[in-house]
Amino acid sequence: MPVTALISAKSCGVTATALALTLASKRPSLLAECDPAGGTIRTGFMQGTTTTGYGLYHLATAERVGPDALAQAFASHLLPMDPDGHRKLLPGLTDPTQAAALARTWSALAEVLHVMATDAEHDVFIDAGRLALEAGRLHPTLTPAPLIYQADLVALVVRGTDQSLMLARHLIAPLRAELDEHGSGSDALVLLLIEDGPYRAHQVADALSVPVLGALPWEPAIAGFLAGGGRVPRGYGRSPLLRHARTATEQLEALAQRRRIHQQWPQPAHAQIAGVLQRLTQAQEAGHG
């Protein structure tokens, strides 16, 4: 199963989108709330049902003890989001000043999340919040850079508005360069479109030169519930937002699988054949010589 990091250029509904994907997946799923600006799910969607004794910040201390301590702390700080425990949440920071303490924890956490994806077969979604750059690089404190670098896919959440596309456009080139240099390649970058605004998926893909992997309907009542909690809206379980989110999870899995195959066999078949033919030709010419 893939590890997908969700980011935005500005507040574009990353948390609501990450929640929709986690809750809609057909497979067991995990949402890691890793926005350095602080998490909102425990007081929003979870409606304060958990205390600050649980969450991301506690992993920093465990990581300094060692890998076993980190793994045990990670497991003990996962909260169920459904009665069966198929949807799990790692709650985020309650204080943005805690983010600096996680600087050396992100890489180790990325490895744990990949174990959850590959060995425990969970769809893993990372709410990485707003992308912050410094001198064309991912900011070392305001962005969980190692989680983004090591993710199978990086999904930039955008809206179909001029403002959202303008802000996203300035991130594309440096983000691609960072993924090529430190990640698994710039082809890990995709878009998730919230259909709020005049522009459709093909127009957004053309404008940003990045494929739109999923388009989620703009349903303010459902998105507001996911982002802020409160009373469950009528029709929540059958909402178009969750139906399209489920489709998006399937698209993410399919793309991640294609990328894995491509990385295992990086040379296209025709290039391999061309190389064989070239060697045969050279051998024949040497024999005639």
Rank of each mutant, 00 (worst) to 15 (best):
T15G: 04
L19M: 15
L23F: 11
F45L: 15
Q47P: 01
G48E: 00
G53N: 04
A62N: 02
D68W: 03
A69D: 14
A71Y: 10
F74N: 00
F74P: 02
H77S: 03
P83Q: 03
D84C: 08
G85I: 04
L89K: 05
L90M: 10
T94W: 14
Q98E: 15
A103Y: 07
E111Y: 09
D123V: 11
D127I: 12
H139C: 09
H139Q: 08
H139T: 08
P146V: 08
P146S: 06
I148Y: 04
G160N: 04
D162S: 06
Q163M: 08
H182W: 13
G183I: 07
G185V: 10
L191N: 01
L193M: 08
R200S: 10
H202R: 11
H202A: 10
L208E: 10
V210Y: 01
P211M: 06
A215D: 07
W218G: 00
E219F: 05
A227C: 10
G228F: 10
G228K: 11
L242Y: 00
L242I: 11
R243Y: 08
R246F: 09
T249N: 11
Q251V: 02
L252G: 01
E253G: 08
L255W: 10
R260E: 00
H262Y: 07
Q264S: 01
I273A: 12
R279K: 15
A286L: 14
